[in-house]
Every structure is written in C-alpha cells, then in structure tokens.
Design a binder for these strands. Structure first.
Lengths: 225, 225
DNA sequence: GCTACTTTGTGCATCGGTTCACAAAGGGAT
DNA sequence: ATCCCTTTGTGAACCGATGCACAAAGTAGC
C-alpha cells in the first residue's frame, strides 16, 4: 500500500497544484452554463491540457469521478476549492499603489474567489488618504499595524524594486508567510515563507527569444516546428 | 559526440531560457555598480539560483567563462542579450487599456530593455483618443492596420476575458506570432504561435494552497518546518 | 443477470531538468 | 617552469512530471 494513512496522500505535486486553478476556472464556466457532469476529456480541452494529465492530477485529490460517466461539476468545484483553501476567505494587502497596485486593487478576478483586498498601503503622501476601489490608502508607517488589525495573511508587493526587500522583511516580521512579488528583485526570505514572483518584463523576454528563433532562424537548421 | 554541427547546440532548454532574463537583470545591476568580473557562485546568489544550475545554463550558450576567474560581466550581458534577441528592439502593442493595460503602458520595465510600446488599442469610445504614456489610444477597428503600420510583433492582451479570443484571432491573422495574455481564458491558437499566460488570480490561489497547509495543517502530520 | 460500451484511475516507460562531484583549465606566486 | 589555488564546464545519477495504454469499474440496454 501507499505510505501512511490511506489514499489521500497529503503530498500533491507542485505541478498539479499549479493547474488546479485552471481546472477550477473551466469548471466554474461549465457550472454557469448549467453543465452537470463532465468527462476528463472535455474538461481537459476546456482547461487546455492533456486528459491523462488531468485525470492524474485529480487522482491526487481523491477518487471523485465515476467510471463510465465522468465528474460531477458542482462536486468537483467544491473539492478543488477546498483543496486550494478557497472555502475560507483570504485577506490580501497590496503594498505600493502605483499604476500596477491600482490595477490590482480594481482587478475583479481577485475578489471573485476567496480573496478580499483588505488593505492598500503606500509611502507617497500624495496618495495616502485617497480612496481606491473603495479602500482608504494607508501610510507605510502603519504597515505592521494594518496587517495585524485586518488579519492579512497574503501580501502583494507592487512597490518599486528598491523598496521591496524592506517591505518584505517588515511583513514577515508580523507573521506573513505568503507573498506575491511584482517587483523585479530577488527577495531573500526564510524557508518558511512562500514567495511567488510575477515579472512582466521576463515574460516578454521569453517571447522575444522564441520570436527571434522564428524570424531570424532561417539561416540555421530548419528544425522549424 | 553531440548531434549536429558543434558546441552551440541550437536547442536551449526551455527552463534555461526562462532563467536567462533573471541572470541578465542581476548582471545589469552588477554592471551599474562597476563590477567587472563575477563568479558563477556570486551570480547565482544574486539571481536566486543554485550555482551548478547557473553554470549549466550558461554552458548552453557557449563557453563564455574563464576557469579560475569567472565571467566578464559586460561580455556576458551582451551574449545573453543577443541570445534572447534583445539587441534588436521589439514593437509591442497593448490591447485593452483598462486598469491593467494602463499600468503596463506606464511600466518602466518594458521599455527599459529592448521593448517599445508602439501602440495602445481599445474598444471603449470613452478612452479611444486619450493619450496614455505619451501614446494615442486607437480604436479596435484599426487593430490590424495599426499592427501592420507600426511593425508590431508582440501583442499584450489586457482585454476582458470575453474579448480575448477574438482579438487573438485577429492579430494572428495579420502575422503576429507572440502573445502575452493577461485575460483569464485559454486561448486557442495554431502551433506556430507562442502564447504566454499571466494570471494574477492563479498565483494567489497557489499561495493560498500553501498557506492553508501551513496554517490549517496542524491536525495533520507535523511536517510543519 | 449478461453483454457491450464508456470513462476513470494508474502502472510503466520516458523525458526533461536538477544536482552532485570532479576532471580540465586557467591564474598567480615563487 | 613548476606548484597550488580557484573556478569553470560537464558526465552521470537522481528526481519529478508527462503521456501511453490498459485493466478496473461503472452505466445502459436487453
């Protein structure tokens, strides 16, 4: 048999975790369109993955399908949501209310499922006190207090690169262990803290690399495809 | 021996490509601080990776280091830039000038290295004609014309989810083969087109998953850490 | 109940990527 | 010119993820 207790082997592969939100989104769309039941094949297409991969991913959560039939949409939505921790709501603070921070504060996708923007913080006296997306922008001096008061557990860093590490250290000092970093710096954090990084410029550079291959590559081998 | 010609095996692993921009950023920082030469160990730390991985990554580009010494910063910057295709400049169009599109248009990191926002396009008559980040916002009806006129080769999709696929089809029809998609949909495109996806909500969900493990897991095994 | 059909869940081979650990290659000192 | 020290570049073992292909498990019809 497996390792410890039973089927639900509390070790879901990272690659699987990264795809669960994708499945969830596809399932939400189906639920809205009144679909009651879906096969791994159809769901895989909707999520843009291979059906064998989808089945293996779902099998890590448990055995929630019915052979010969498929998966019940509502039930699967619930199971994935629970696994991802979206059945509770998460208070998110956005630090740095520049163009990007503002966009994030107004971004509907955040609020929609399980997340709630609970605080906006900035250093610029010009914006502190403004109301953005229905929230008062607080001063960076209040950072620790605000995080504790609002029960923030996830912090989004949208500050300039130079300020990111300091803000990062400060939020960690009051117990935050999950950070989404938009600043183009490598944050140094204890192992116990999770950092996910989004760098728009890096994505463009990766595209440029492939684009160059397509455009400039004809004098090279014709591997093409 | 290897496959074809020689050392420079024109097949750089995808994982390596994704890290090159990281090295490049670290190197730029060093160049600014006047560092002339750097060891794989130091560069690895600055980029937040393991030094063996860094060396293997760089070895895919060629043999640009000196044993016993390290890498010459300027030279390595040039080599990586060239490999990524950043020695030419890329005209980027941003479609969808909502909060996010606006943030992207003003985002310094884009322009800084090799990329130039060459066009802004939106469907809302309210914003068409506005000047944002020094650029006139053009109407979506002009999409194909603008792309051809400005020589755009990379398109950033910051439209609502519902509009993304149509815009995507249209830009592909005029030859665009690189797309950075911020809309929360799975785009369907021919194999010859590269799509990279950034979904802010998905990143948060992944964080929530791990956060839940840390916080809610105490009744499970105490792997904690 | 039995047969035919559908679709899941998974064992297994494979592949790409990571990491270790060391030989090869260079610099500098004497 | 020889020796020692540093650091690169890479062979090889390892690890996780992918995808095939099929047995197991269910439904439906008769």
């Amino acid at each position: 048999m497996k390792s410890a207790s039973q089927s639900r082997d509390r070790g879901i592969p990272e690659a699987t975790v990264a795809r669960l939100p994708l499945y969830l989104r596809a399932l939400h769309g189906m639920a809205e369109r009144g679909v009651a039941t879906v096969s791994s094949e159809d769901l895989a297409v909707a999520a843009g993955v291979n059906s064998a991969k989808l089945r293996k991913d779902l099998s890590h959560l448990g055995s929630y399908g019915t052979r010969g039939v498929g998966y019940e949409v509502e039930y699967l939505v619930y199971q994935i949501s629970r696994e991802l921790g979206l059945t509770q709501d998460w208070a998110v603070a956005i630090v740095g209310v520049g163009n990007l921070g503002r966009a994030l504060a107004n971004y509907g996708g955040f609020v929609s499922r399980g997340f709630r923007v609970a605080a906006l913080v900035d250093a610029d006296p010009e914006v502190v006190g403004d109301t953005i997306a229905g929230l008062n922008v607080e001063h960076i001096d209040e950072l620790e207090a605000v995080i504790k008061r609002r029960g923030v557990s996830i912090v989004v860093l949208a500050t300039p690169a130079a300020a990111a590490q300091e803000v990062c250290d400060r939020v960690i000092s009051v117990g935050v262990t999950s950070i989404l970093n938009f600043a183009p710096v490598v944050l140094s954090v204890p192992d116990s803290v999770d950092v996910r990084k989004v760098d728009l410029s890096i994505e463009l550079q990766i595209l440029a690399f492939h684009e160059q291959r397509k455009a400039g590559g004809p004098l090279m081998a014709v591997d093409g495809q």
